[in-house]
Design a protein around this nucleic acid. Structure first.
Lengths: 271, 271
DNA sequence: ACAAAAGTGTTACCCGTACACCCATGC
DNA sequence: GCATGGGTGTACGGGTAACACTTTTGT
C-alpha cells in the first residue's frame, strides 16, 4: 500500500488513536428479487440479542482495518446467499448510512453503531439455507411488510403492533429507502434487467415493472421503448417454448445489454 | 428516550462493548454556492496533520453517543459558515459514506476512519472568517479544482501534481460525487432555487443552470417550463430595478415555491 | 373454432425546440 | 435612436399514449 500523502510520519508516531470515542461500523443488506410476480426481500430472523426473534436485514460488522463497507457487503452477500457476488455480477449500491445514537439499544452499553445500508438485486436467488448464521431466513414480499406503518412507528419511537413480521432496529426505515431507490431507478436506468434470468422475454421484463410498481406501461409502447433504447436488451435468435397448458406464440428471447440509462425515462399511469 | 425494543436488559448488562474494534466516524461537507456565475465550494486549508497544508472539505467528528451524522453535519455547517442552518433552511443531503481503510493515513496507527459525506447548498453564503478552526477557508470554483484528474490520481494511489489546490484524503472523490449529485438533481428537482437569494428573477434562476452545467436551456422554453411547473416559483408583484449602467426592462421577481420535483425533467443540449 | 399470448399498425395529440418578434428602460 | 435585457408568439416535428388489429401456437 502506498503512503497516501499522510503528512509527516512523526505525526503518526506521536498519534493516539484512542483519542476519539469508538464507533462500531456495520453493513445492512436489502437483497431484492422478484418471485412469483412479487418484489421480495431477504430477511433473517435474529437468533441473538438485541432484537432476538425479530426479522432483520442480513448484515454484519466491517472488518476493522481490513476492508471497506462495500467489501464487507460483498462478503456478507456471499455468506447469506451462498453466491460469489463478483461472479454473479448482480447490482450492488450504497443506499445511505444510519447513525442515530439510539438506533441500536447497545448505545446504553456505550456502543454507538453506525450502519451503511446497501441494496442488492439479482434474479432467482436460491432459497437461503446453508452458510447462514441466522435462525431462519426467507424472502418476504415487500408489500406484506407494512413498511410505511412500521417506519412511522419507528420514527415515533413507538412499538409496531401488527400482522407483518416485526423488523429489528431501524430496518423498516432502511428498507423503505431501499425500495424507493429501486422504484425510482427502474424509471431511468436499465436496472429492471438485473431482476430477470437470462435469456428473458420482453413480457418477463415488463413483469418486473408490474412487481415493483404495481402497474406497468402499455405492452406495445413498452416494447417499442425498450427496443429503441440502444443497449437495453440484445435479441437472441431463439424463442422460448410455450408452456404446455397455454397457447400463444413462442416469444423471442433477449439478453441484457450494456446501456445503463433510459433517456428519456419511462413514465406511465400509476394506479 | 424510549427503549426501542432492545430485547432483554439482561443481555445489555452482560454486554461487552469493547468486543468490536473501534472506528472513528466523521462527516465531510461539500458546501456549494454560486458566486459570479460559477459553482464554488468551500474548502479549508488544513492547519494540522494529517494532510497539513492541503485543502480539505470542512468537517469533523461525530459526537459519540450524542448525535447522528446529520446532526454533526448541521453543527459543523454552523461552525464553518457562522450560520444556523436550521434557520437558513438550506438544502442538506447525504451523498455517501467512505470507508476504505487507507483513505486516512491514521489507519497505520490503528484508526479506521469512516466518513459520511453531505452536500449542502445555499445562496450567497458569507465569506468564512470567524468561527473557523482551519488556518484558511475560501470558496473555490469547482472547475478550478481539476476534480477528475485528482480523483483519478487518488484512485491510482498516485500523488496529484498540478496547478489546482491539492485536496486532502479522498476529498477529490467525494467532491466529484457531490458535484455529480447536484448536477443530476438540477434536472429533476427544484434544487436550483436553493442557489439564489430571494427574491430572484427567472434569469437569475437560469444562471444557476449555466453555472452548474456550463450551459442552460433556451430562455423562452426555460421560462415556460418553470412557470408551468406548479409550485416551482411564486411570482411577487414587484420588479427589480435595473442596474444603472445597463438597459432592459425591470424583470419580475419570484420566490421559491413548495414543489420538490420537476416532472418531466429538464433536458437540453449540453455543450 | 377458440383462447391465450406475442407482436404490429395507426392515429391523434401533447410538448419541447427553435427562432422570430415585441416591450421596457437607460444613455 | 440604439443597445440591452426581459418577455411573448408560433410553426414545426418527434415521441408517446391509446387501442385496434394480426399472428402464432395449444387444446
Amino acid at each position: 500500500m502506498t503512503e497516501r500523502r499522510p503528512g509527516e510520519d512523526t505525526f503518526l508516531a506521536a498519534y493516539d488513536p484512542t483519542a476519539f470515542p469508538p464507533f462500531a461500523l456495520t453493513v445492512d443488506l436489502a437483497i431484492f428479487t422478484v418471485r412469483d410476480g412479487l418484489l421480495t426481500v431477504l430477511l433473517v430472523e435474529r437468533g441473538d440479542h438485541p432484537f432476538k426473534g425479530y426479522w432483520a436485514l442480513p448484515g454484519g460488522h466491517v472488518a476493522h482495518g481490513r476492508e471497506s463497507a462495500e467489501q464487507a457487503a460483498v462478503r456478507e452477500l456471499g455468506e447469506e446467499t451462498g453466491l460469489d457476488w463478483t461472479t454473479v455480477g448482480g447490482h450492488l449500491e450504497q443506499v445511505g448510512t444510519y447513525t442515530e445514537p439510539d438506533r441500536d439499544p447497545r448505545i446504553r452499553a456505550g456502543l454507538h453503531v453506525a450502519s451503511v445500508a446497501y441494496v442488492a438485486l439479482a434474479p432467482n436467488l436460491p432459497l437461503p439455507t446453508a452458510g447462514t448464521d441466522a435462525a431462519r431466513a426467507r424472502f418476504w414480499p415487500v408489500e406484506d411488510l407494512s413498511l410505511d406503518t412500521q417506519r412511522a412507528a419507528w420514527l415515533d419511537r413507538q412499538p409496531y403492533r401488527g400482522d407483518a413480521p416485526v423488523l429489528a432496529y431501524d430496518h423498516a426505515l432502511i428498507l423503505s429507502h431501499a425500495r424507493d431507490r429501486i422504484r425510482a431507478k427502474l424509471e431511468y436506468t436499465t436496472l429492471a434487467a438485473q431482476f430477470v434470468t437470462e435469456p428473458f422475454t420482453l413480457a418477463d421484463l415488463r413483469r418486473v415493472y408490474q412487481a415493483v410498481w404495481g402497474s406497468a406501461p402499455d405492452l406495445a409502447n413498452f416494447r417499442r421503448k425498450v427496443l429503441k433504447t440502444p443497449g437495453f436488451v440484445v435479441a437472441t435468435n431463439e424463442h422460448r417454448a410455450v408452456a404446455s397448458d397455454r397457447g400463444g406464440a413462442p416469444p423471442l428471447l433477449y439478453r441484457r445489454g450494456d446501456a445503463q440509462r433510459i433517456d428519456p425515462p419511462f413514465t406511465w399511469e400509476r394506479e
